[in-house]
Design a binder for these strands. Sequence first.
DNA 1: ACAGAAGCTTA
DNA 2: GTAAGCTTCTGTT
Length: 997
Amino acid sequence: MAWTATPRRAIPAGMKKGDHLFLVDGSGYIFRAYHALPPLNRKSDGLPTNAVLGFCNMVWKLMQDARNTDVGVVPTHFAVIFDYSSKTFRNDLYPEYKANRSAPPEDLIPQFGLIRQATTAFNLPCIEMEGFEADDLIATYCRLACEAGGDTTIISSDKDLMQLVGPTVGMYDPMKDRQIGIPEVVEKWGVPPEKMIDLQALTGDSVDNVPGVPGIGPKTAAQLLEQFGDLDGLLARAGEIKQDKRRESIIANADKARISRELVTLKNDVPVVEGLDDFVLHAPDGPKLIGFLKTMEFTTLTRRVGEATATEIGDVQAVPVTIERADTAHGPDVGSGAPAAAESAAGAGPDEAVSAKAQAPAQGDTPSLLSALRLEAASAGKIDKSAYVAIRDAATLKAWLAEVKETGIVAFDTQTTSSDPMLADLVGFSMAIAAGRAAYVPLAHTSGNGDLLGGGLIDNQIPVREALALLKPLLEDRSVLKIVQDVKYDIVVMNRHGIDVTPFDDTMLISYVLDAGTGHHTLAALSEKWLGHAPTPLKDLAGSGRSLVGFDQVDIDRAAGYAAEHADVTLRLWRVLKPRLAAKGLVSVYERLERPLVPVLARMEQRGISVDRQILSRLSGELAQGAARLEEEIYGLIGERINIGSPKQLGDILFGRMGLPGGSKTKTGQWSTSAQLLEDLAAEGHELPRKIVDWRQLTKLKSTYTDALPGFIHPDTRRVHTSYALAATTTGRLSSSDPNLQNIPVRTAEGRKIRTAFIADKGHKLVSADYSQIELRVLAHVAEIPQLTQAFAEGADIHAITASEMFNVPVEGMPSEVRRRAKAINFGIIYGISAFGLANQLSIPREEASAYIKKYFERFPGIRDYIEATKAYAREYGFVETIFGRRIHYPEIRSSNPSIRAFNERASINARLQGTAADIIRRAMVHMDEALDKAGLSARMLLQVHDELIFETVEAEVEATIPIVRQVMEHAPMPAVSMSVPLHVDARAAHNWDEAH
DNA sequence: ACAGAAGCTTA
DNA sequence: GTAAGCTTCTGTT
């Protein structure tokens, strides 16, 4: 279960293997939360609500996604269990049981009923039964889940429940965010869970008035049980106890111990009404839950739920709740057995009973149906642009912003003069507060050719400074959610004006989390896909290519229509897409791996990196000279001055006129002049191909790097600011462009000279930290390969170990060729190996490559199993998942075309490994700044190159920075995932990137 | 002016 | 065999 998803079923069914039941000890939680949390009263009438809020926060966290907590699993089934009354079968057994319980505090009493109502509002089964304690019901459902093959987590920290802990049953303490398993029970009590009953029988419980044996505490009890095995053994051989007092007490109180045992033994065969199939987890009904939360006046949680369920909280009315007063209450069971109260609390109709049976199958409950309804609503209505407005004065803008503040949600977009956010000047911004209700605020539109007249600013525009001053409080308002398509761009633009955009949602990123692998995530693509609407393309307004003008030159009315539509479409998309995250269990991927990376990358892009112009200029000259010399030699050899950069001309000369052997054709029928092919010819002794390959290398370095990079040096910062795309790759990797700083040469000595131009500021150093063999480590972890796991744990040479296993040669004195082949196979596995590819890579016959692969799978059958399981999974579900739950879709994996199918299979095998590695470094990046901050270090993250992070730091802090960076990177998977293979990071510092790497 | 192919750079 | 982005050439618009 390390990686496989458990697709949620919409149709109630019993449990099966792999399902996970959450049982919340509701009654236990009430008392604990009441005492642990600070007092809280509803503002409007002083109703005490601290335990209710604690309960709602806890349940929301658990329901949203278990990765938010230390539980680490996603529940498929969920129920909240309560005590029904204070009188149970145990009172018949022992009348004094729980007799010394005092009445609950006055301000706790109304909260009993409210918490039951909250449970119903969350769409969760609220389970209780007369004559039984919550603990007995929990024991019964644990047994049922276990028999069905499912796992259970009990949400409680009550020691009375620890007897239930076992291989398939764990506990989770929601207040300490801590898991309790078998080791934790042993650690705390000194005995395994199955001996907890005997231990409690000896120690007793003063709170519940369980007598136990006087003078025996947990330490003594554990020691006695260790010595005598169990309670019966102890009572039978009590005479052997050496200590006089202890021996006498046990013999005298043997009956008390026996009755105590009966009292603390949980009854796991309660004749329950609701079955496990009634506990199938459904997404909460946004409006229903929000209605309750609003009534409770839990503003933060209301907003969170609104965001997650994409419900406009302003639309939802508060609902009446039933409040039990102290004078009508009579103990902890207040409000229980009062379905009418719970019903009204949830705003449900009279037909909807609270019992889980009636509740579970309600149609609109399922997350997928909610999403479907949203989608239907979204694509049904045509996009009406008639209500879009242009705001030309501050008073109108203020009125709109006030309305946004009230609503708490706004879709937002900036219009600027450049697609590069570091160069963009703000021209205007648009916002949408409801479908069809959108406005554009022009700020800096100019008339005519500004290059001649200095740009005449058009009248009736709010000055940029004034507009930003009005906008800033809203963009920074924690209670207003900003919805933006590709928010990083807007964040960078706004940061440059001293504005922090928070909190935000990004429709592009939501789509990426939901649908990576199924197409692009641009606004146009998403609008077409989900709304059936093609928004106006920018080129219709600003032109393209040579005729491209800045957005400031666009007519204001046309700009208003375009920009307002952009915001309107963004808002509509968000309403369709956001609920899908919860429906598909992808909330935590979005919230943990995607959204928090946005401000991190925005900062990295704004910092940029220093690039030494002079070094590049000198290199460019050297490269030009080298290329010119080679050109002359090449012309001499072919006797003609062709364009060497034209593969067509080159191919015609080499394989046509000069008749060199072995030329193959490309798919357009041209001669192939690939480096591989020219290298082969050079190896056969031909002079010309070598020179062509060298010429290509020099011209490549010159045009792509030494000549292009200086053009990216920013006029103000004097640094180079790349742009990272978060949603461009299918696997979860970032991509870098304008310029791409993820493909700066490193393999050849010539190429590495480019890296010497990437430098630290005066008094600073660059620190480069890279993961060693991260994808192979991920492979060893997910495929659970003992030899590889061990080799990594020992820090051994992984390729040599592979070779040793395959070819039965010792690692000591291994020929380099043997190791090289094993290395190629290891990489081949990561790429979804094929005999064809391996043969190509090693320049060996395909049959030989096949034999290698066969041998490899014999020695590492776990890897073959992993590959087959991944293919089967991808074929069944159409996607694969990383160990952190990121999904990557392969819609063509069922293609009837074998080569398309095979390609998708290889890609899906690679995606889990590459994607997991990408997730790991994302997690490291998300946590890095805080870790450096905490350590008091000023190091700044500048670049990411897939498995490498580059920092700039003052020289004095280099030594302190490296261990922090390594610590964060090596432990990045924790606490979400604990890998069975250690991660290793190499880090070093130098003045330039070449020496640091 | 643009799109696609070919080729090269990286992890 | 996986994942990207950039430059040049070439043919078409």
